[in-house]
Simulated assay, not measured.
Amino acid sequence: MRKTKILYVEDEPNLGQIVYDSLILKGFDTIWETDGAKVMSKFNDFTPDVCVLDIMLPNVDGYQLCEHIRNKYPTIPIIFLTAKTETPDLVKGFEAGGTDYIRKPFSIEELLVRIQNQINMHGLSENSSRTQEKRIKPDKIKLSTYNYYPKRYELVTPSKTINLSNREGELLKLLTETGSKVVERKDILLNVWGDDSYFNSRTLDVYIKKLRNYFKEDSNIEIQTLRGKGYLFLVK
Rank of each mutant, 00 (worst) to 15 (best):
N166H: 10
E168G: 12
Y146V: 05
I141E: 01
L143H: 09
L164R: 09
I162V: 14
I162N: 10
L174R: 15
T161F: 04
T157V: 08
L143C: 11
L164M: 10
E170A: 01
Y149I: 03
T178G: 09
L172D: 06
R185T: 07
E168K: 12
Y149H: 13
V183W: 05
K151V: 02
T178S: 12
P150Y: 02
L172H: 05
I136M: 06
K137A: 13
V192E: 04
E170L: 04
G169V: 00
N191Q: 12
K142T: 15
T161A: 10
L190F: 04
V156L: 12
R167D: 09
P150L: 00
K151W: 01
E170P: 00
S180I: 12
R152T: 11
L174S: 06
R135G: 15
T176M: 07
L171T: 00
L174M: 14
V183I: 08
V183G: 03
N147L: 11
S144N: 15
Y148W: 10
P150V: 06
L172S: 07
T178F: 03
K140P: 05
Y146F: 15
P150G: 05
L143G: 09
E177P: 02
L164V: 01
E168V: 04
Y149A: 05
V192Q: 00
S180K: 15
T178V: 14
P150T: 02
S144Y: 09
Y146L: 05
W193K: 06
V192A: 04
Y146S: 07
D187Q: 14
R167Y: 06
R185A: 06
Y153V: 02
I141Y: 00
I188L: 00
Y148H: 08
L190K: 11
L171I: 00
G169E: 00
N191S: 11
L189D: 03
S159R: 15
S159Y: 14
T178P: 07
R185E: 13
P158H: 07
L189H: 06
L172E: 04
E154S: 10
D187N: 13
E168I: 03
K142S: 14
L190P: 00
V183M: 03
N163P: 07
D187C: 02
T145R: 15
K186R: 15
R135I: 12
D139P: 07
N147K: 15
G169Q: 02
L171K: 03
P138C: 06
V183Y: 02
Y153I: 08
S180G: 11
S180F: 09
N147I: 08
L175G: 02
R152A: 00
L172W: 04
T176R: 10
E177Y: 09
V182M: 08
L190T: 02
P158L: 03
P158I: 07
E154L: 14
N147P: 01
Y149F: 13
S144R: 10
P158A: 08
I136T: 13
L143N: 10
S159Q: 15
S180H: 13
R185I: 01
S165D: 07
L189K: 06
N147Y: 14
L164S: 06
L174N: 11
K181Y: 10
S180D: 13
S144V: 08
D187Y: 03
R167G: 05
W193G: 05
L164H: 07
R152P: 02
L143R: 09
G169H: 05
P150E: 01
V156H: 12
V156P: 03
V156N: 11
Y148G: 06
N163R: 15
K186N: 14
L190E: 10
L155W: 02
